[in-house]
Structure formats: structure tokens, C-alpha cells
Amino acid sequence: MEWQQRDQPLGNPQSRGHPMWLLVPPDFADLMLQRALELAPESELDVAYRDMSTDSVREQDATAWADTLIGDVNDPPR
């Protein structure tokens, strides 16, 4: 986990202009992640991606579309 302060792009604290990292002990990793997720605001983009991922028809259509592109890789250059 990187220390970060809003007005300091490299992270805070810093060591010679490089961000310092905090290693979370494994016993606390799940707790820290859960708390961070609770505190992080969910964006409209997050909601849209989650909704799209549960739309099985849209997923099937996207897969079919992507599969048609794979054949283009084998086509000779124009």
C-alpha cells in the first residue's frame, strides 16, 4: 500500500522523491482491503461495469463480436 496525500503526487512520506510503501501484515490485509472498499466512493463507471457484467445477453453479444475479430489476425496484410 502506498502512502498518499492529496497534495503530494509522489506519496507521503517520501524518501529522496520516491514514494514509500507500507507493507501490510497478512493477518491485517483482508481487514484493510475491506475497510478501504467501504470508504472508497463507488463511481458511476463502477456501477455501469457491474451492471454490464450481470447482463448475460450483452456478454454473449460482446463475446461473439470479439471472436469475429480473432480471424482478422490471420488475414494477410493489405
Rank of each mutant, 00 (worst) to 15 (best):
M1T: 05
M1E: 10
E2I: 09
W3E: 00
Q4F: 09
Q4A: 08
Q5M: 05
Q5G: 01
R6C: 00
D7F: 05
Q8K: 08
Q8M: 09
P9I: 02
P9V: 02
P9S: 06
L10F: 07
G11P: 00
G11A: 01
N12S: 11
N12K: 03
P13Q: 02
Q14H: 03
S15T: 13
S15F: 15
S15V: 15
R16A: 15
R16I: 15
R16D: 15
G17R: 03
G17D: 06
H18L: 15
H18Y: 12
P19K: 00
L22G: 06
L23E: 13
L23F: 12
P25S: 13
P26E: 11
P26K: 08
D27S: 15
D27P: 03
F28V: 08
F28K: 14
A29Q: 11
A29G: 00
D30C: 04
L31S: 06
M32K: 02
R35F: 03
A36H: 02
A36I: 02
E38R: 07
E38I: 01
L39V: 07
A40R: 15
A40C: 12
P41S: 14
E42Y: 04
E42L: 14
E42M: 11
S43C: 06
E44M: 09
E44L: 09
L45P: 00
L45T: 08
D46W: 00
D46P: 01
V47H: 08
A48I: 04
A48H: 02
Y49M: 12
Y49D: 09
Y49H: 11
R50L: 13
R50I: 12
R50Y: 08
D51T: 13
S53N: 10
T54H: 15
T54W: 07
D55S: 14
D55L: 10
V57E: 15
E59N: 13
E59L: 14
E59R: 15
E59C: 11
Q60K: 13
Q60E: 14
Q60F: 07
Q60S: 13
D61S: 14
A62K: 08
T63V: 10
T63Y: 04
T63L: 12
A64I: 08
W65Q: 09
W65F: 12
A66I: 08
D67C: 05
D67Y: 02
D67T: 05
D67I: 01
D67F: 03
T68G: 05
L69W: 08
L69I: 03
I70R: 06
G71K: 07
G71Y: 05
G71H: 10
G71E: 11
G71R: 05
N74H: 05
P76V: 00
P77G: 01
P77S: 09
P77Y: 04
P77L: 05
R78L: 04
